[in-house]
Nucleic acid binder design. Structure first.
Lengths: 227, 227
DNA sequence: AAATATTTGTCCGTATGTATC
DNA sequence: TGATACATACGGACAAATATT
């Protein structure tokens, strides 16, 4: 069809659609043309068009409903972490180290802003996470509370990119099924110290407990290669 | 077809393929079954399968060639920034601020590691970027040198996740067409000071110049809504 | 070197379910 | 209720690129 590049059509169409959304400055909620209109406008079959536009839907850029059409979505942090699973096909243990390093730098780097802007509601939910940690036996449940604890800390910073990056790093942690070699009680204490320092608005204690929290050894549990 | 969930088929297939790659612990270079085999195994048409698998190709997870088949790719940082364009459909000015904050925290947070591990070759390329900056008139060219300067700093850190995040943040900067309100000479000087400090292995000067580099005001140039 | 098989790329047609008017 | 618009899903067909014999 396009004699330009002999590049695969669905890749060209994907770029065109990206361009279309950006150049027309589409906002969340805006409608985009139907499959028929788009395929005719681009001069490709509906099949090729769908291969490109379903990528946008899976990535969370647009939503489609039969009988309605397609609309642009608002950005959600999870759409970035959706892509993060790409990392998992590489060396797992090393990428876990990388995600740990990045998390440490990001969380400590934004600690000041967190301390200044955190609300009582956030602190309460962090305390609830600590309480939940104490009652869990299974590590997976423990893990969920840990993740929610940290997510609650930074959700009020008005920085969706930070949230997206932190979620991506957590996504790696989860998929690696890494288990921290650390006493459960110590792990809980570390988190409790952070929440207490925030509750008492003690900046020095907050920073100290946060930095201390990131000091531990870890091992990797390889994912079961089930059936 | 599947009365189970009434969830869209191509979304289910996408999850299945993700699962397949992870559970089978596929490494870069490994082959995955043909479209016919996969569509038959999953009980869906070849069309639906392609809508899911082309997402994986566009994301850079797999590559396909006619007559050969599909293989798993190695992770490349660009695959993450491919997703970052999702952010662009939201409030642009605010997300530029966010990317600036994240970049600042990440670059300063990893400055110590950068200083310890940087090689002469990296520093030479950074110096070349500064030289290039001096000869450019157009801001776009200036911008490319700026991006490459920072990328060279951290590429030796053995942390692909960091590189991916930094690239993602740069992707935002670029698409926002943000222009820093700053004297060109000052901008060049800031970068030159960083490279000089690294060349002379002066840690204090390096940190000071890097922190100073991130202090500036900016404005946003909205993307032209061409044609 | 040449013919054949394999695999992806692209298009078409059709039927179904769902939402809107 | 019916009619229309739209996405969903299937199957077939042929072309193009590559590998194999």
């Amino acid at each position: 069809m396009k004699n330009l590049k002999s590049k695969k059509l669905y890749l060209q169409v994907y770029d065109e659609l990206r361009h279309y959304i950006l150049k027309n400055n589409l906002k969340p909620g805006d409608k985009i043309p139907t499959e028929m209109e788009l395929s005719q406008a681009l001069g490709v079959s509906r099949n090729v068009l769908r291969e490109a536009i379903k990528t946008l839907e899976i990535l969370g850029v647009v939503s489609s409903k039969p009988g309605v059409g397609m609309v642009v979505n608002a950005f959600s942090p999870s759409s970035l972490s959706t892509c993060m699973f790409l990392n998992l096909i590489d060396d797992k243990g090393d990428l876990f180290r990388q995600s740990q390093e990045v998390r440490k730098v990001l969380e400590i780097g934004f600690a000041q802003q967190c301390f200044d802007s955190i609300t009582d509601d956030q602190i309460t939910r962090m305390e609830d996470c600590v309480t939940a940690m104490e009652s869990f036996e299974e590590y997976e449940d423990f893990y969920d509370s840990d993740a929610y604890f940290h997510r609650s800390m930074y959700e009020n910073l008005d920085n969706k990119m930070l949230i997206a990056f932190l979620d991506s790093a957590w996504e790696c942690d989860r998929s690696f099924r890494a288990k921290v070699i650390e006493d459960k009680a110590l792990r809980i204490k570390k988190h409790r110290d952070i929440s207490i320092a925030l509750r008492e608005k003690d900046y020095e204690a907050f920073m100290a407990s946060l930095i201390f929290h990131f000091s531990y050894k870890y091992k990797i549990n390889p994912p079961e290669t089930e059936e």
